[in-house]
Simulated assay, not measured.
Amino acid sequence: MVQTILRRDEVERVTGLPRSTIYAKIASGEFPKSIKLGARSVGWLEADIAAWQRSRIEARDGVAA
């Protein structure tokens, strides 16, 4: 199964978070870890970002995950 990998600029766009916040949240365990794609590039699985977004919506709405 092929999974879509989002690059950092796409992750920033779909989450609304700046780069510094993304990396701070990764360090604190609040955001999915990135996948190393090359010497100077990373990406995130689209499914992981979607799951993170769903968890934020559930937290807002008071829905148990």
Score class of each variant (00 low, 15 high):
I49S: 01
F31N: 05
L37I: 12
D9K: 15
V11A: 10
V11S: 07
Q3P: 04
I49C: 02
S28W: 04
A27P: 04
I26V: 15
A64H: 11
A51S: 07
A39M: 01
T4L: 01
L45I: 02
R40I: 11
E46T: 02
K36S: 10
R54D: 05
S20Y: 11
A65P: 06
I49Q: 05
A24C: 11
G16Y: 03
W52V: 06
T4H: 09
Q3G: 11
T4Q: 09
I35Y: 13
K33M: 12
K33D: 14
A65V: 10
V42M: 00
E46R: 11
L37G: 10
W44M: 05
V42D: 00
A65H: 04
V2F: 06
R60A: 01
S20L: 09
F31H: 04
Y23C: 07
E12I: 14
W44F: 06
A59L: 12
A51R: 09
L37Q: 07
A27I: 04
A47C: 00
G38A: 15
E10D: 12
R54A: 01
A24L: 14
A27S: 00
E10N: 12
Q3L: 10
E58Q: 00
E10M: 15
I22M: 09
D61W: 12
P32Q: 00
P32Y: 08
D48R: 02
V11W: 03
D9H: 13
A24D: 15
W44L: 08
A39V: 13
E30S: 08
A24I: 00
M1T: 15
P32M: 02
Y23V: 08
V63Q: 09
G62L: 10
A50E: 10
